[in-house]
Design a binder for these strands. Structure first.
Lengths: 340, 340
DNA sequence: CTGAAAGCGCTTACAG
DNA sequence: CTGAAAGCGCTTACAG
């Protein structure tokens, strides 16, 4: 491999100073009143020699790395990996790269990763916050390093975020079921304090109340060794023989729900209508195809990146927090075709 | 935020030189004959003040970034995002972080990304090579920067890689079908020169020949605007009315195959037995559940990381190329239960 | 056993 | 219009 070219090589070849070369390369020729002739000479040689500035040296000097830290529960979950994909596309267009890691919904791991990202001087963070990290995030935001949250948020935490209208999503899904003739509708969710899950539950409840129907909410405890989610659901479905429809509050809950149905020999529709939060391939191919609340993944990623980039550019001048709420889409399929 | 502590702060506080502090921090106290007392003093203060070396300065000086570049077609494909997840876990344990990007199977994009990774001084690469990049990879390897390939490989390219036994995988799957009474078995694959796809095809052919059955191979052209994969498959299945079983050579091909079946009203088993290359959730839930060749994702990731780390540690002393071939697992499900 | 100093490759305030 | 030089925060060859 040919030896790496440096600024000083260019300067020497052209008999000008390093300063001048640096100014030209960084597009400050105009601003610094460098003559057209010199500017062109430099640019031509840079082109000819294929000079690439050493990003490490640049970062050390400027404190900017052009790296964004991306933190989620588990990068292999389809929702997160799709977000990652779109973020990467957008980031690349602006010269940023993404460092990712998975917290596994673990407080200690998340703290550690935040520390590692800090050590590596990431310019900003995009993350889905694990429970209990409110204070760390508050501290992070106070250091003036841009942070944009998504998927979940903390109601009284002043920060930038992009989320979806969880209340509206389940409200609409519930109304859809009701208008198709279902009355005995259950909502199966996670036993958690995560705001987005509470919002989803609330949307369901509001719709049920609006139609004078009584809510049936089952909160499943995950990460509990002595009582598997499937066992918990089995008991619930056994008690609720007259159930006509179920809304599952997240994709993995839906998967476990379908597994439970299989174990119990319950045929989803026409027996029990099913709606899943989060759309994924399986639902389309299931027999019968399952109605799903789809999150606008690309839109979420684009908004995250847009907010982060604007913060990055206006760094210093503290801008107002941007909070974006996107609406979801109800993909109606056979599973909720109605009782009629 | 409290001002960042530097080596010189520690040195000043302790009235010793920067050199000594640096040696202690880098675990060279013994080697450099630093006294136990001094060593302890330094370590205690580092602990107390929570000193973290500036990785940027360290990298600039040493040329090592502890960053690994991870390049695949599309990070949001489940296979790749799972690999990413396991790699991240393993890398973190050794103090490495992963920078990822998607090539979208695009030659120009891949070249560009390789350049960007180089600019960022990644210590090594893990990648699934897009077609036509053989020469770039050869150059890369010659620069002595560790590269480990996976998923696909080029037969006469001397390098490290982790792949699966594609020939054996489809050979076994085909034999499984034959022993369950299927004779008229088709193989639906991609129209490509990618070695791993050719290997899969070859495994199928060898099994068919071994049993004196005639092969039926359909190569689907993807990325062709005027003739969708589904249309191509439709025509094929229409011509082959007597088909008893189909092996799809990759997960997305299988998905399109299932879509085609749906369009045509073909009921997979019992009419047509189906085997998919790559296992994913959908197959388990499909009705009937579909038999699949599963790749050992975690094992692949672990091997990739092990090879890369060993190369990273022995940098300079060029080690022999490690080429690992892992075997797959045939997850037998209802779709191939047999004609009996 | 320990320290002063050069150097990694940039950017930029300051001087002319 | 342009340049000499300091400094970002480390590591390490060299000297004592």
């Amino acid at each position: 491999m040919k030896k790496k070219i440096q600024i000083k090589d260019i300067a020497k070849e052209l008999n000008i100073s390093i300063t001048t070369v640096s100014f030209v390369i960084n597009g400050k020729a105009k601003e610094k009143n460098i003559s057209k002739a010199v500017t062109k000479k430099v640019l031509d040689l840079v082109e000819k020699w294929g000079y690439q500035p050493n990003t490490l040296a640049k970062s050390l000097r400027t404190g900017k790395t052009n790296v964004i830290g991306f933190l989620v529960d588990d990068i292999s979950e389809p929702f997160f990996s799709q977000i990652a994909h779109f973020l990467d596309q957008k980031a690349s267009e602006s010269g940023y790269k993404i460092l990712f890691s998975s917290t596994h919904n673990n407080y200690g791991k998340a703290i550690e990763l935040l520390q590692i990202f800090r050590d590596r001087h990431v310019d900003g963070y995009i993350m889905a916050l694990p429970e209990g990290l409110e204070n760390e995030i508050k501290n992070l935001i106070q250091t003036d390093i841009p942070v944009v949250l998504f998927d979940r948020y903390v109601p009284d935490l002043e920060t930038d975020y992009v989320i979806i209208d969880n209340v509206g999503a389940t409200f609409n899904a519930t109304e859809h079921l009701i208008s198709n003739g279902y009355k005995n509708i259950a909502f199966v969710t996670l036993d958690t304090e995560l705001q987005q899950m509470l919002d989803r539950e609330s949307g369901y409840e509001q719709a049920m109340i609006a139609h004078n129907l009584s809510s049936k909410i089952k909160r499943i405890a995950y990460h509990q060794s002595d009582d598997s989610p499937i066992e918990q659901m089995k008991r619930f479905f056994n008690e609720e023989k007259q159930l006509e429809a179920v809304i599952f509050a997240a994709n993995y809950i839906c998967l476990d729900g379908l597994r439970t149905f299989k174990h119990m020999g319950i045929k989803s529709s026409p027996n029990v209508a099913v709606v899943s939060f989060d759309d994924f391939e399986l639902l389309e191919f299931y027999n019968p195809a399952i109605t799903a609340i789809a999150q606008p993944v690309q839109e979420i990623a684009e908004n995250l990146m847009k907010i982060l980039l604007s913060k990055l550019e206006s760094s210093g001048s503290r801008t107002a927090f941007k909070q974006i709420v996107l609406s979801t889409n109800l993909n109606i399929r056979e599973s909720t075709e109605g009782k009629n």
